[in-house]
Structures are given as C-alpha cells and as structure tokens.
Amino acid sequence: MPADEGLLDRIVNWLPTTLGFKRVASWILVPYWAHKTPVKPLPGGPHASFQHGDNVQCMMNLIMPLKVKSPIGRAEAALAIAQNKDAIYAGLNNVGTVHFARFVIVGDNICMFSVYDGDFTNYIRDFIATIGQVFNAVVSLVEGGDDVIPCEENVEAFIQWVHERDLYQVPDTPTDFLRDQEALNGDRAVSPVNDDLTLLPRKLVLQLRANPNVSLGSGYRAYPGYSAAQVRERLGLGW
C-alpha cells in the first residue's frame, strides 16, 4: 500500500470490505453493471481439448432445481433414485466410461456429479440408450424437465438440456475465464484491458452473476488421468 495514501483513499479502499457496502452493491451496483455490461453465461462442462489426458476423468456437475421445493419434493427425488438403483448400476457397467456417479440433494436441487471419459455428448447419449427410463424418472421431478422427456425421443434436446445445467468449470488458472468470455463473444483478440487484474473483481462478479453455480477448476487429480477401462484392466477386474 502506498505510504502517501490520503484519508479519502483509505475510505475508498475500506468501503468495499464492509458488509453494508457489499449488500448495497449486490442490490444496486451489480444489477446496474450487468445492465451496462451484459455478460453471457459460460457453457458448462470440461474445456475442449485434444490432449488425451484432458479427455479422461472429466467432470459433470449437474444441478437441477426440483419442481416441488419442499421436503416432499426432496423425498420424491430420493425415492426416484432408490427405486432405480439396480438400473443405475447396470447402466454404469454398460456405458463403460464412468468412474464415479453420485446423486446429491442440496437445498431444493437434485444434483448429479460424475466423472467420465471421452466426449460429453457420447457419454449422455450412451446413458440415454442404456437407462433412459432412470433419466426420465428423475428429470420428471425437475423444473423444465417435462420438455425433454422421454429422453429417448428427444435425444438432442435432452443432451442440450443437460449441457445447459452442467456447471461452468472455471479454469484451473481462474483468470483464464476471461479468455472463455472472449471466445464466447467471438472476440479472438485478447484485450489488454482484460489482462488488467485490477478490473478482475467486476468481471468476475458479473460472470458469477451469469453463472451463479460454478466448479472451481476442473478437478484436482492425485495421479495422471486414466480411463475407467484402463483402471479396471490394470486391476485385473475385466472391462
């Protein structure tokens, strides 16, 4: 901090750290910024890459708001999963590219988190072909889900619907989200303004307004990426 900082500078620097200012900014300033500088939501899923290691153990973080926002709605969701447990296991086996899959209820959302290999659309399509009825049972409880079920007859729309609910994965180097913004806007030239980290908070705030839920990074691995089948093969489990 510069030593010659005056009283006014100190107030300006202190003000944003106060809770009251943050609340006022959230209600007034951020909507005003968003109105003046519209920011598009960034698409979900892993960043496209041709590197082999980036195409195994990919993350899907699906957050789906329930239609019935109450304990009854949450119980219905839990029941839908429980009733289809065997089909889910069979599906995981037949699709062959899944490492882990979890269903989680957070608030009034049913969430599906999974780690899979290969292309996202192939992954979802293979799941539809294998256990489409499970997707139908779960998605029928979710806001906007009726438009895309039965998923077997709405394959393209269903995949798109899932993709839109998959969380944006902020790059491992978080400032790289600026590059994603530029790519989304078709701006291929890197603006020097966007490299100025003093402006990052506003851009980050606006992006997180457009993408309220995000994955921070694309997952941290304790070992290099292997496909589910490679793991099974090397452990002698068959694949």
Partner: peptide
C-alpha cells in the same frame, strides 16, 4: 461421425489397450 472420430479414432477409448 463425431463419436467415432473423437472417442475411437483420436482417443482410443473403446479398448484400454489402445487408449491414449
């Protein structure tokens, strides 16, 4: 076309002996 190109030709995901 894309499923074949992406997962099979380029990644070798269909068989762990050729993956990567």
């Amino acid at each position: 076309f894309e499923a074949m190109s992406c997962d099979w030709l380029n990644l070798g995901l269909q068989d762990p002996r050729i993956t990567e």
